[in-house]
Design a protein around this nucleic acid. Structure first.
Lengths: 71, 71
DNA sequence: CACACCGCATAGCAGATGCTATATTGTCGG
DNA sequence: CCGACAATATAGCATCTGCTATGCGGTGTG
């Protein structure tokens, strides 16, 4: 088993995180090191993040939480 | 311009880094959060790393240097 | 020698990504 | 209302990635 942590609803999670941080899709994409199109596709459920992108996303969230910018 | 840093010979760089750290392709892949096939393709010049993968690779190298594990 | 591994190379396929271009949807000031 | 602008949605195409399987040389170990 040993699945990668993935919330039931990844698209909503990305949107929620992005809005808490008051970032545009473009800005979040830059912060994560991916393209705007990629973040957009995640939020609209067109694709699911790659292994590395998932790691990067959760790591980013953890950092933001450490800084108190994210609940 | 603002290009992404990319040595003349990425395949050789990956091999060199990996061997200094005494890791197998499998182990390096795991450390980077990508698959074995991906590291293997980088080393054999079959593909060039994605934007995010490049960031991850250089960040990993920087960490290893901080720890004195890499020159 | 036969056998089981391990590390590495390679291939095929489905899905993800980067880039570009083109809508669409607000939200302003005029 | 109208034009301008930013943010978002969507699409196509080339490339990258993950997964699985296969082959191949080297290294034990019986």
């Amino acid at each position: 088993m040993a699945m990668i942590r993935q919330p039931e609803n990844f698209p909503e999670t990305v949107k929620a995180v992005r809005r808490q941080l008051a970032l545009s899709q473009e800005e979040l994409a830059h912060a994560l090191g991916v393209s705007f199109a990629t973040v957009n596709r995640w939020e609209n459920g067109k694709t699911v993040p790659s292994k590395l992108a998932q790691r990067q996303f959760w790591q980013f969230c953890a950092q933001m939480k450490e800084q108190g910018k994210l609940i």
